[in-house]
């Protein structure tokens, strides 16, 4: 009797503990397709290597902000030799200047990862505001 109760309890516990896994089985949770804009594809090199960029773009933006606002240094020469304007959204040589489709590039991944960066409360997507 008590043995059965223990086993039943264990089964319930395991099922409950694994809830996130079985709940998502069969769901459409495939990693999103990130689409590079034609311009970004043609440029080939970003600020850092692809995987570095994926992991560290927020740190870069943070450093860039301090550099631009505090020291008025606005140009960034990467270790790969390319020059960038340290700006998220203004000008041809900024992040969105090259990654022209924010929805297919930034948003898809942010939505998938369930992060809501508040950059966009103030920074504007040039495509959206010039419509």
């Amino acid at each position: 009797m008590s043995k059965n109760a223990i086993i039943a309890g264990l089964v319930v516990f395991v099922i409950a503990a694994l809830f996130p896994f079985w709940f998502n089985i069969g769901g459409t949770n495939a990693a999103p397709e990130i689409e590079l804009s034609a311009k970004a594809k043609a440029a080939k090199k970003c600020v850092l290597d692809k995987y570095d960029m994926r992991a560290n773009h927020m740190t870069i933006l943070d450093d860039w902000r301090d550099s631009v606002v505090r020291d008025s240094d606005r140009m960034y020469k990467s270790t790969n030799g390319k020059e960038f304007e340290m700006s998220l959204s203004t000008g041809e040589n900024s992040c969105l200047g090259c990654h022209t489709d924010k929805e297919k590039f930034c948003d898809r991944c942010h939505n998938y990862a369930s992060v809501a960066p508040y950059c966009w409360e103030c920074h504007t997507d040039p495509k959206e505001v010039t419509q």
Binding site: S72, D73, R74, M75, Y76, K77, T79, G81, M86
Partner: peptide, 16 residues
Amino acid sequence: GGSASSIPVVSPKAEA
């Protein structure tokens, strides 16, 4: 030497 360096370089714009 050459175009790439081992650390990134920041600077103001030349026309500032």
